[in-house]
Computed example of a mutant assay.
Amino acid sequence: MKASIEWDGEQRFRARSESGHEILMDGDRGKTGPSPMETVLMAAGSCSSVDVVGILEKARQAVTGCRVELSAKRAEGPPSVFTEIHMHFIVTGEDVGEHHVERAVRLSADKYCSVSIMLGHSVKVSHSSEVRATGP
């Protein structure tokens, strides 16, 4: 895997992935794009969400939505690394089993999500979930 980062003026940096995708990041408190640390947090949530949805689909759960709300704490001084990350999954669908969602979140956390597992070597990562029925 490869990527490149190019300075785009001020504190903006354009990140390009080997697959041809681009993200604009902003080191000036996220004025014009997410900061690099926000991008790391979003990557952890995205990676876990891919796993959770995939596992639920394989379990034949009628998932219509998946949202993960992330909260993180950072160290006081430089380097201001993450010290804690919490991921709260909200899964919607018809008759989605809560035990299926809990299992999917656990499998992502323990086995599949390379981003959060990597972060978990130095950050306290926790998870929670809830199921919401879709309908009128």
Rank of each mutant, 00 (worst) to 15 (best):
G30C: 03
T83Q: 11
D110M: 07
T32L: 15
D95L: 12
E76G: 13
R29L: 15
E69C: 10
L24N: 04
A104E: 01
K58I: 05
L119P: 08
A15T: 08
S129R: 02
M42Y: 06
S80I: 13
Q61M: 04
I55Y: 04
E94P: 10
T92E: 13
A3F: 11
S116A: 07
V68N: 04
G9A: 07
R103Q: 09
V96A: 08
T83G: 07
I117Q: 00
I55C: 01
V81W: 13
I90Y: 08
H127R: 12
S4W: 11
F89V: 03
V123H: 01
R14D: 05
C47Y: 02
E102S: 14
S128T: 09
V131Y: 10
V52W: 02
G27L: 13
A43S: 10
D8F: 15
A104R: 03
M87E: 14
I23W: 09
V125Y: 02
S122V: 05
E84M: 11
F82P: 00
V81A: 12
M87T: 14
D26M: 08
S122Q: 06
T134G: 12
G27P: 10
G93C: 08
C113G: 04
D51R: 02
D110E: 14
H99R: 13
T64R: 14
G65L: 08
Q61D: 04
P34M: 12
G33A: 06
V40E: 01
E130I: 10
S126N: 05
V123W: 00
G77A: 15
G65P: 07
L70K: 01
V101Q: 03
L70S: 09
P78D: 15
R132C: 07
E57F: 12
D8Y: 14
T134H: 11
E57Q: 15
H88E: 09
I85C: 00
V50F: 11
G97H: 15
Y112G: 00
V50G: 04
F89I: 06
C113S: 05
D51G: 05
A59W: 12
L119K: 00
M87F: 08
K111L: 04
G45L: 01
P34C: 08
S80V: 12
S35K: 11
V52T: 06
R16W: 10
V91A: 03
V68H: 07
Y112M: 02
T39Q: 05
A3R: 08
V50P: 01
H99C: 15
R14W: 10
D95K: 13
H86Q: 12
K124T: 11
V68G: 02
E94I: 15
H86F: 04
G77D: 15
G9E: 01
Q61N: 01
D110V: 09
R132G: 10
V91S: 05
K31T: 15
T64K: 14
T134W: 10
Q11N: 14
R132T: 11
A43E: 01
R14Q: 10
